[in-house]
Amino acid sequence: MPITLPDLPYARNALEPHISAETLEFHHGKHHNAYVTNLNKLIAGKPEEGKSLEEIILSAEGPVFNNAAQVWNHTFYWSCLKPGGGGEPGGELADAIRRDFGSFQAFRDALADAAATQFGSGWAWLVAEGGRLKVVKTPNADLPMRHGQTALLTIDVWEHAYYIDYRNARPKYVETVIDHLLNWDFAAKNYQKAGG
């Protein structure tokens, strides 16, 4: 059963003006798609071929890991964004953020800082680990599930995620995503699945 490219959970222009349809056309249609294609080529006829994406990610190294993890990361990233997103979460997740960061603003600063300071390509994350929330950053394809953490939210800071719309202004892209696009309903679901 080959790994397949999921559809975007919204139209390509749904995130405008914050992320352009042109960016999503390349990011989903080319980059994400290439990771799917490369992974299927790499695992064809190998023991990994029958495994789930998560099983491959947890056991593979090198190019198989890179492509598998990037398939997962991008699928997760699309769901972390939505038109009319941003703002602040409610409910138990809001309580947990206040408990572990002190305030929503302190969390926001920590996430923006992680995203701005991930040198080179990578990702910034809100994760749950051992019943606590944390902000972490990972290089290239690396992801929380390889570190015993559950991902709640992510921001892609590979340059291809923002270069068409923001050029070198990564902090502006990051702040725009946090303020206008983050999908807190999705984060809350991930938090519940992680056991709260």
Binding site: F26, H31, G120, E159, H160, N168
Partner: peptide, 12 residues
């Protein structure tokens, strides 16, 4: 081969 070196013209 950072993406910033080529993305505006060559994208992916």
């Amino acid at each position: 081969v950072w993406e910033h070196a080529y993305y505006l013209h060559y994208q992916n």
